[in-house]
């Protein structure tokens, strides 16, 4: 019981930020993650043992987020509302902060142009750090589907000139 409690507490920040990236609304994300964790707690007997539980947790979180997205069209409402404006500083120096904020803004804008079925795997893969098999569990699709969706998402993101410029800058460094 304590193990589960501590695991949920440890997982909370990343799950919350994943939900924020999917929903782009901190308030909605907090509600979604709370719902998700409540479900995890209620149905804790169904949690798979070992490494599978991380994918299972994200499956519940993603489901909670998707339910909110579909019910309230959160993403559509917040796609252009400047949700990133006024985000707090990370305390890593003005130049680094500015650069990170610019990259974050580019990624956010590029993500906002992705459809939901591509955006979620990208967030799970590149932010939450899930493997393709874990993403497959989380979004309840086959691993092949995840692979093709990630590939399609990368192809679309490569059309974004700002992200391409960032990539070239990284290579130059």
């Amino acid at each position: 019981m304590d193990d589960l409690d501590s695991w949920l507490a440890e997982s909370y920040p990343r799950a919350y930020r994943t939900a924020c990236l999917v929903l782009r609304s901190p308030a909605e994300a907090e509600d979604a993650v709370q719902d998700a964790f409540l479900r995890v707690w209620r149905f804790r007997d169904a949690i798979p043992p070992g490494d599978g539980r991380r994918a299972w947790l994200y499956r519940v979180v993603v489901n909670a987020c998707l339910s909110r997205l579909r019910a309230e069209k959160v993403w559509r409402q917040r796609a252009d509302d400047g949700a990133l404006d006024g985000l707090p500083s990370t305390g890593r120096g003005p130049q680094q902060d500015t650069e990170d904020a610019a990259l974050g803004r580019c990624v956010a804008e590029a993500l906002s142009r992705l459809p939901e079925h591509l955006r979620v795997p990208v967030v799970l893969r590149y932010y939450s750090g899930l493997a393709e098999k874990e993403i497959a569990v989380a979004i309840q699709r086959r691993p092949g589907t995840v692979k093709s969706r990630l590939s399609e998402a990368r192809r679309r993101l490569a059309d974004d000139p700002a992200l391409v410029a960032w990539t070239e800058l990284e290579v130059a460094r």
Binding site: L8, A9, Y12, P13, R14, Y16, R17, T18, C20, L21, P26, A29, E30, Q34, F37, L38, L84, L87, P88, T90, D100, A101, L103, G104, C106, V107, A108, V122, V123, Y126, Y127, R154, L157, A158, D160, L163, V164, W166, T167, E170, V171
Partner: peptide, 27 residues
Amino acid sequence: ISEDVLERGLADLGEQYDVPAGAVDRL
């Protein structure tokens, strides 16, 4: 597009969302 750029961008973006104070306790 570089996957590193994507990871860094998303990490930075995620870090900018502060975890609400006391959220875990409320949970």
